[in-house]
Design a binder for these strands. Structure first.
Length: 509
RNA sequence: GCCGCGUUGGUCAAUCGGUUAAGACGCAUCCCUUUCACGGAUGAAUGACGGGUUCGAUUCCCGUACGCGGUACCA
């Protein structure tokens, strides 16, 4: 019998969501949908010193933008509410106590200063960072080293304490990672991690295990940086008596910086000129601003597609996937083990592909926004859509529409005729002087009729059509770019064409 | 230092022991187009190193190197 698949994305609300974070959500989401399961968003705000105002809303908004709405979340609620760990404080304490009572954890009264002292005292060349572990714990102040009455006294006096897990001295512990296969560790090298902090809040280690159990999570996916603490979690599942309910795990590879080595950070984006956050983010504390993919002009479809291909592929060579296609093709076992360097050029390629193939209808609101911020008035939707179809293949990022489509709405300020001036002559001046009358007389106004009339007139005057097309383009567009001239002329309309010809002629005079 | 995880062209990557080692991005050249793109064609460029196992290793195993991650009362 199959239990329903339940996965969770569990971020800390400490700032904007970067590429790696969004990809973790994506893989969770794809897995859940692929298996018809639930996708829950749980906010891991156990460290109130790192809590950042607005981060949770930012996360929600990012998920919405990407089309990955959670089934259960702080905002949407759900059968396992609350979904913020800060609101579940009481339950963690209870389990911590249970572990102490069973002898799998203990109270530790060491102050931060004492901890610091210990680290200094035992620091050596071959052990630069001494751990609070089985070798040292009897030298510290805790319920293992202190007498029972002493512990009772400290407790009753209200001396602050933390709860630490008691790692076995020598045990090999392992699990099967869905991506990496068998992974094992020796408990002798793992320290006695703090489970419950002195403020009564759990650390990540206790909180994930308790909540994954309570929320009946069946599969837990997280970044590779969590692999080293897996043995702590494994033991917790066992000590709490929940081994049978333990989720299957997968540790996702990291997204690396494009140059050099190391994890991609928002600094790299600033340095190299590309976004690393999903959406714009301004840190309320430092006022530091970080640009997002959305504001840079990425379509969420492209953003998601690009992220999915960073560390995963379906093995066929197919690269362009819609969310629906991703959902049906996604398979955790095909996720890579090694990290992938982020390549902004490739990211842009994905966006270009999506813009090129998107129906004008889909692009309409975005393009209208772009035009609006460029101070171009575009009110007629059906006209805008025709423009979109004409120019979309030359737009990589959404803001490109401002340049590529602008001249359909506004005549070029002062057409720069420089590129054709060298070869200009009286015949050409005459051609364009007479052109408006010919256009006026045209019975039908469309690209084909326009081109025919234009070419016929050129032939009659023995001027090469090619020599006339560039000046015509410059008059209409204002630059050496854009779709076929006659398509442009047909769309902007007879009067606009005539006006622009006249202005162009003036610039040539 | 210790522990863990990785390593196929510049980048993303296919291959699940036998191929001339796919494909994509980027780059270069050409065609199309007397604009810019799109599209098409072609090209340069790859299995970290050393041992095994095997008739045969990019693929399996072991070392080494290198990289990354962890080593917090942060997640």
């Amino acid at each position: 019998m199959a239990t329903k698949v339940r996965v969770r994305f569990a971020p800390s609300p400490t700032g904007g969501l970067h590429l790696g974070g969004v990809r973790t959500v994506l893989f969770n989401y794809l897995f859940a949908r692929h298996h018809g399961g639930d996708f829950v968003l749980r906010i891991e705000d156990t460290d109130n010193t790192r809590f950042v105002e607005g981060a949770e809303q930012y996360i929600m908004e990012t998920l919405r933008w990407c089309g990955m709405e959670p089934d259960e979340s702080p905002a949407a609620g759900g059968p396992f509410a609350p979904y913020r760990q800060s609101e579940r404080k009481a339950s963690y304490m209870q389990y911590a106590e249970q572990l102490v009572a069973q002898g799998h954890a203990y109270y530790a009264f060491d102050t931060p200063e004492e901890l610091e002292e210990m680290r200094n005292a035992f620091k050596s060349a071959e052990n630069p960072s001494p751990q609070y572990d089985h070798r040292l714990r009897m030298k510290m102040k805790n319920s293992l080293s202190l007498g029972e009455e002493e512990v009772g006294r400290l407790l009753s006096e209200g001396v602050p304490y933390v709860v630490r897990i008691k790692m076995p001295e020598q045990e090999t512990i392992g699990f099967t990672d869905m991506i990496r296969g068998e992974v094992s560790f020796s408990t002798s090298t793992v320290d006695d991690k703090v489970l419950l902090k002195k403020d009564g809040m759990p650390t990540y280690h206790l909180a994930v295990v308790v909540d994954d159990y309570l929320m009946q999570i069946t599969h837990a996916f997280r970044g590779e940086e969590w692999l080293p603490s897996a043995p702590v979690h494994l033991l917790l599942w066992k000590y709490l008596g929940w081994s049978d309910a333990m989720p299957q795990w997968a540790h996702l590879p990291l997204i690396l910086k494009p140059d050099g080595n190391g994890k991609l950070s928002k600094r790299d984006g600033d340095r190299l000129g590309f976004p690393v956050f999903a959406m714009n983010w301004t840190d309320p504390r430092s006022n530091e601003f970080t640009q997002g993919f959305r504001e840079r002009g990425f379509l969420p479809e492209a953003f998601v597609n690009m992220l999915a291909m960073l560390g995963w592929n379906d093995g066929t060579g197919k690269e362009l996937f819609s969310m629906t296609e991703l959902i049906s093709a996604f398979d955790m076992s095909r996720v890579h083990k090694g990290g992938a360097k982020f390549d902004f050029e490739k990211a842009k390629w994905f966006n270009h592909e999506w813009i090129k193939t998107a129906p004008a209808e889909r692009l309409l609101p975005d393009v209208k926004d772009v035009l609006k911020t460029a101070d171009i008035s575009a009110v007629d939707d059906s006209y805008v859509k025709q423009v979109i179809d004409l120019v979309k293949e030359r737009c990589t990022l959404l803001p490109d529409f401002a340049e590529q489509a602008g001249f359909f709405f506004k005549a070029p300020a002062a057409p720069d005729m420089e590129p054709v001036k060298a070869k200009w002559n009286l015949d050409k001046t005459l051609f364009f002087t007479d052109l408006p009358a010919v256009l006026e007389a045209l019975p039908t106004w469309n690209a084909i009729a326009l081109e025919a009339a234009f070419k016929e007139m050129a032939a009659a005057r023995a001027i090469k059509v090619g020599e006339l097309q560039l000046p015509f383009r410059l008059m209409l567009v204002g630059g050496k770019f854009g779709p076929a001239v006659f398509d442009i002329a047909a769309l902007i309309g007879k009067q606009a064409v005539i006006n622009r010809i006249k202005k162009g002629l003036e610039s040539l005079a």
